[in-house]
Design a protein around this nucleic acid. Structure first.
Lengths: 245, 245
DNA sequence: CGTTTTTATTGATCAATATCAATTTGTTCC
DNA sequence: GGAACAAATTGATATTGATCAATAAAAACG
């Protein structure tokens, strides 16, 4: 297993934690839990091989966005899950498909610790144990939710579900709508949503035509009407979770 | 949460453990771990509501096949995972989609224990703890693998991958090929593979025409050439796992 | 054993999305 | 600022898989 460290040609994007709360949790809980973790700087596009059994690790995203990637056909791939600042990834969650890896979708930073060390540390404190198990469970639940989305929804529905989920995760209230930064490129987003990049582009176009989406910058979009987007997704997909602001 | 117990109109199918090994592990490890679990008999089609936070449970399949189900559109659903004898399901793995449930795809029996009890028991023994965590990790890995399959493969590829996985899980060497019992109905299998039941039927037909599949009974199929089926699936999906017999 | 009910197959058609190629737009870097 | 490069959009067309309706095949049941 090789982990290439950043060659520092491009400046690493500074920390972009979605909001104060998450930053706080991240700082207090994880920095203690991961006090002896290795910091790994990653550049957009970089591949981080996931360790085998013996080198099982826990990864925690500090900044940037990463994805769990598996290569499928010769030229295609599937992104199984996205990891944002504060998210954890345990390598035993990996599907065991040849070529699987973590892939940086933006510049960023993550911390890596051997699972054995994390386990020992967690054993010392029931509080940390609970925190960790909770994080990992949520990540599995997210995987299940994504599978439901890919397997059960049409293209536009998937995109709407993605936008709503992102808005809830990191959107900022702005005017009458929600301002949203979508870090992954079109191709990455398409590979995550199991859509063709061209098709995804078209769906974004339709949403813009219908006034559901407005581009405000490179990766920045404004959603004037989140409720309308939610209505595009079969009810039940978002069971009355409060929308953070 | 209501769990309907069997009304015993139809006889419950007797235990069908795939082979001696699994039966053994199941007996020795789990019966001790789950010694104070409730036994729940289920009939094909029965829905088992998954508990909320407070009533989080661990389920262990004794006999039969169950699936984690989420309703999508009005008439459609997605089966996220299949659970066979010996498999475990922890309710915090649920995606949190309205209407989610365990669904019995055949008559069978499962054991249910409150998570708190299981946790306490596992805390007593590192061996059990490890066994449990390992089972749950594998179930998450299977979820990821299934997501890769649904998101990245075509219909026929998905079906081939399903057949190969089932052959490896429970197939019995028979003549020059593998004999396989496929318990779930066409509709259930289709919902699991995110395909239309008609389309699935056609794919089975094509596989039969190509001599990859032969019907041998109600749910029993014979695969004369497993290698040919494996070649239909992008390499990497099945990285040199030994084929059990 | 024949009737009822459920499950599976098959054909004709349609809709959704992938593919390929050509532009356009945006970014990076001198 | 402008050349060189990368990313995103758009149009024309092909392909896959869904849908609907009709039929066939199996099980269940009296």
């Amino acid at each position: 297993m090789t982990i290439h460290t950043t060659q520092r040609r491009r400046p690493v994007a500074e920390a972009r934690l979605p909001n104060g709360l998450q930053a706080h949790v991240f700082e207090t809980e994880f920095n203690r839990l991961m006090s002896d973790a290795t910091t790994v700087r990653v550049r957009r596009g970089q591949r981080i091989a996931i360790g085998a059994e013996e080198t099982e690790c826990l990864y925690v995203v500090s900044t940037g966005v990463l994805a769990l990637e598996v290569p499928m056909q010769s030229r295609t791939r599937q992104l199984l899950a996205l990891y944002h600042p504060g998210d954890v990834f345990r390598s035993s969650l990996r599907p065991g498909i040849e070529g699987e890896a973590l892939r940086a979708l933006s510049n960023g930073e993550l911390r890596r610790a051997p699972w054995s060390v994390v386990e020992a540390r967690a054993a010392e404190s029931a509080e940390y144990q609970k925190f960790l198990v909770d994080k990992l469970s949520k990540s599995t639940a997210a995987l299940a939710r994504h599978l439901a989305s890919i397997g059960g929804l049409s293209g536009p529905e998937r995109v709407a579900a993605y936008l709503v989920a992102e808005a809830r995760r990191s959107g900022k209230a702005s005017g009458s709508g929600v301002l949203l930064e979508l870090v992954p490129s079109r191709v990455d987003t398409a590979d995550y949503l199991a859509l063709n990049a061209d098709t995804l582009s078209r769906i974004f176009g339709h949403f813009q035509d219908k006034g559901l989406l407005q581009r405000r910058g490179r990766n920045v979009y404004w959603l004037p009407n989140l409720q309308a987007l939610i209505r595009l997704v079969p009810s039940g997909m978002f069971p009355s979770e409060p929308c953070r602001r």
